[in-house]
Design a protein around this nucleic acid. Structure first.
Lengths: 250, 250
DNA sequence: TGCATTTCTTGATTTGGGTCAAATTGTCTT
DNA sequence: AAGACAATTTGACCCAAATCAAGAAATGCA
């Protein structure tokens, strides 16, 4: 697995004036289409816990997360739910050419989204091939992330699942300079135990137990329930069960 | 979940003279770029069991499956493996802009692939925006399939997993006319018990036991190990645990 | 046709993670 | 600061699926 954003042109549909993390903005992309995007965009904010859109609802926009964290979930009739995507700042939601939402989108923290009306967005895609190409790159990255997650869901133990999630959050949280750091790392968990369980295909009790176990074994340190410090990232990644860095995923 | 191929323009990069299933060929697409594709394409065939390409290997082509079935798999160091994609006729493999393969690609039956040299293909993508847009649609479909599979891996029981797989294979196998049929349906399993286990995140013993159980309960009938007939598709889909038709997935 | 090999089934047993239940901690309200 | 409510932890027990172990059936090959 390669670090897509190191050797490939970073992709983003974020418009120029959104205060988003640096890694998603690419100087080479700041061309005409950014100005066109400005004309059809608007902002929406949601509070933690609010549902942005329900699966099946009419969705007349596509959007990019500016700040905060949202999740994509799917549900079976009897209520079993599985998170199928985690949206962090700069991530894209919605699908050109699709009328209705395929998943529930929920804000897990307060979020700000930069929305583009779907029809004009699609028309612009027709006119400016560059956008379709960038969207393709982003979608391919997401597909890789989803497939990485399939390996986790299908074959990893509960402990490995937790370690994998912690290691991914740690990496996404770390600033650019620290991306390849393997030493001590500190961050806040953006998800409840239940949301973690939904992501990992576990129950919240198992999540809690495994986090306690990792703490007991010195793999992580906890301050309160959410503030985590990892004394040794290498150790954590070892616990995650794979050598791939996985850092660009999610 | 909508039937993408019913209301959306079917997408395919298959070139004109490949003897592939009808649903992948779209008359509206038979334009200039098909002729351009003809110039850079070549065929390769593999025998059942052969590896097409190993994860990490240099991959200087992209390709489309013409006949037969191939799988994408990922592996952990200790040998645990998870299938992350099933390639059926008309499905696309490879990623523009990526030098090396991200997954193991293996032929599970004898297959014929229609390959395009990657560099010229990428150049053509630059010139003909239509291709990027079609690839985007295909990739978005694959992403949906992967996410549907995440729900299966994370939250379904072994019995539901088997029923889901059977129902998907039945639907993909059925001809166009029978797509929405819900009556009796007969097909051959294209996968070994082990491959099914790798797809479903189970062991081959559990796969075997659950197939026996579905047979005992009259949900399916078996002739030999591989030839399956489903007396009542509705019943099977009920066993699969979700109401979504899932037919366009995979 | 018979032997060898792979694929599949079935049984016995174990176990990781689920379920149910209770206690604890943290957060918000007023 | 006290009470209420939500989030989390921990314990006891259970069960679905894994593991270990034979066999049986299908397939290929000489």
């Amino acid at each position: 697995m390669q670090m897509a954003h190191d050797d490939v042109h970073p992709v983003s549909l974020q418009c120029g004036d959104c205060p988003i993390r640096h890694r998603a903005v690419c100087a080479r992309c700041e061309t005409d289409e950014i100005e066109q995007l400005e004309e059809i965009k608007y902002y929406r904010s949601f509070e933690a816990g609010q549902t942005v859109i329900w699966a099946g609802d009419k969705m007349d926009f596509v959007a990019s997360v500016v700040t905060g964290i949202a999740t994509l979930t799917q549900t079976l009739e009897d209520g079993r739910t599985q998170m199928v995507g985690l949206l962090l700042p700069s991530d894209f939601v919605g699908r050109p050419g699709r009328e209705s939402a395929a998943y529930n989108v929920t804000a897990t923290t307060d979020i700000l989204m930069c929305c583009f009306r779907r029809k004009p967005f699609e028309e612009m895609m027709e006119r400016t091939p560059h956008i379709a190409q960038r969207l393709l790159q982003m979608t391919l990255d997401e597909l890789d992330a989803a497939r990485e997650w399939m390996l986790l869901l299908g074959r990893k133990t509960a402990r490995e699942k937790i370690a994998s999630l912690l290691s991914i959050v740690a990496r996404r949280d770390a600033s650019i300079k620290l991306r390849n750091a393997t030493g001590r790392m500190t961050f806040d968990l953006p998800l409840t135990r239940e949301a973690m369980a939904d992501y990992l295909g576990l129950t919240l009790e198992t999540v809690s137990r495994q986090i306690s176990a990792l703490k007991r074994d010195g793999v992580i340190e906890l301050e309160g329930k959410r503030h985590v410090t990892v004394p040794d990232m290498d150790r954590l990644m070892l616990e995650a069960g794979d050598d791939s860095d996985g850092g660009f995923l999610i």
